[in-house]
């Protein structure tokens, strides 16, 4: 199963060429940041053991639309994710974890810091990453199939070829037979499957999940977690997920990272050593309980620092 992983990793030499082509444009557009200046050029030659996602000293600020006041949402976060790893960030609602994910997706421009996927600098959205949004946000005028191939279509893949490539994804997320439905005819869980398939079909190196099951009811959520576990078993994608469900984080991940309350900083990191492949059965092991309690403890301590604690479990 792990040889799928080897296939996904690009040749490092080719990577360096790619960088050489894009570097001047990327450097010109960005504001001066100290990390990039002090980083020696050797970083350009990515070595195979380098992490797939490399985030260094990331700062994200938001401007208040009325006053122009700047608020820090993410403060000097550094994070590495190895290829094939499933990493989840948990934290209170509004702690800045979604901002972090959006920055990695290229949807939010950070104030400073560097982000690289497979050695390639993140400068906006790219084909190496796909996002599964919390809301399915399927285009209502497109059928399930046409929603799934949307990303491929935008990249100029001809429709018949895109449809062919989507076939295996449709089986993977169990949407066979629903290809010609419109999103309105689907349940929330089904819509989220389409959302997932749309992300998988572009074959990203890094899959970004933004609270993907938060809007689903408890039972559908569990089903979707099972699906995600089995999909991950097949694809071994590198995943960065954001959630506020502690049990979900522990169940799915290799590593759980707790973000401190706003502005987000890396709080505590937990290695989840539960055996793979996992199922919902993993919930009943004492190790699961122990880890969930530990994570909860760390989150709770950051919650109690809030002046108006609104996070009650």
């Amino acid at each position: 199963m792990n040889n799928g992983l080897a296939l996904e990793r690009p040749d490092p030499v080719w990577e360096a060429d790619e960088l050489a082509v894009h570097w001047p444009r990327a450097a010109g557009e960005r504001r001066v940041d100290s990390a990039a200046e002090t980083t020696p050029l050797t970083v350009l030659a990515a070595v195979p053991s380098a992490p797939l996602l490399e985030v260094r000293d990331l700062v994200i600020t938001y401007e208040n639309q009325n006053t122009g006041e700047l608020t820090e949402a993410v403060s000097h976060v550094s994070l590495n994710i190895q290829a094939g790893e499933f990493v989840t960030i948990v934290g209170l609602s509004g702690c800045g974890k979604s901002s972090f994910l959006n920055a990695v997706a290229g949807l939010v421009k950070p104030a400073s810091g560097t982000m690289k996927v497979a050695g390639k600098r993140i400068d906006g959205p790219g084909p190496d990453r796909s996002v599964v949004f919390q809301k399915a946000t399927l285009l209502p005028w497109r059928t399930v199939m046409d929603n799934i191939i949307y990303g491929l279509e935008l990249r100029g893949v001809p429709k018949p070829i895109a449809r062919e490539r989507a076939e295996s994804c449709i089986d993977l997320v169990r949407l066979r037979g629903f290809e010609h439905f419109h999103p309105h005819a689907l349940s929330g869980g089904m819509q989220q499957r389409v959302n997932l398939a749309r992300a998988l079909v572009t074959e990203p190196q890094l899959l970004l999940l933004d609270e993907p099951f938060a809007a689903l009811d408890a039972i559908t959520r569990e089903t979707m977690q099972n699906e995600l576990l089995s999909i991950w078993n097949v694809t071994r994608k590198t995943v960065l997920m954001v959630t506020h469900q502690i049990d979900e984080a522990v169940l799915l991940s290799d590593r759980v990272i707790v973000f401190s309350d706003r502005p987000a900083r890396i709080g505590t990191e937990f290695k989840i050593n539960l055996p793979r492949p996992r199922t919902q059965e993993a919930r009943y092991s004492p190790a699961f309980d122990y880890l969930a309690k530990e994570v909860f403890g760390v989150i709770h301590s950051s919650a109690s620092k809030r002046e108006e604690p609104e996070y009650v479990i």
Partner: peptide, 25 residues
Amino acid sequence: DADYKRVGIAYGANQWQLFSTVALP
């Protein structure tokens, strides 16, 4: 819908593609 636009942008749509695949329909 800003969410539809965001999906387009996340999947690499340029201005013209955003217009033709999201705005127009």
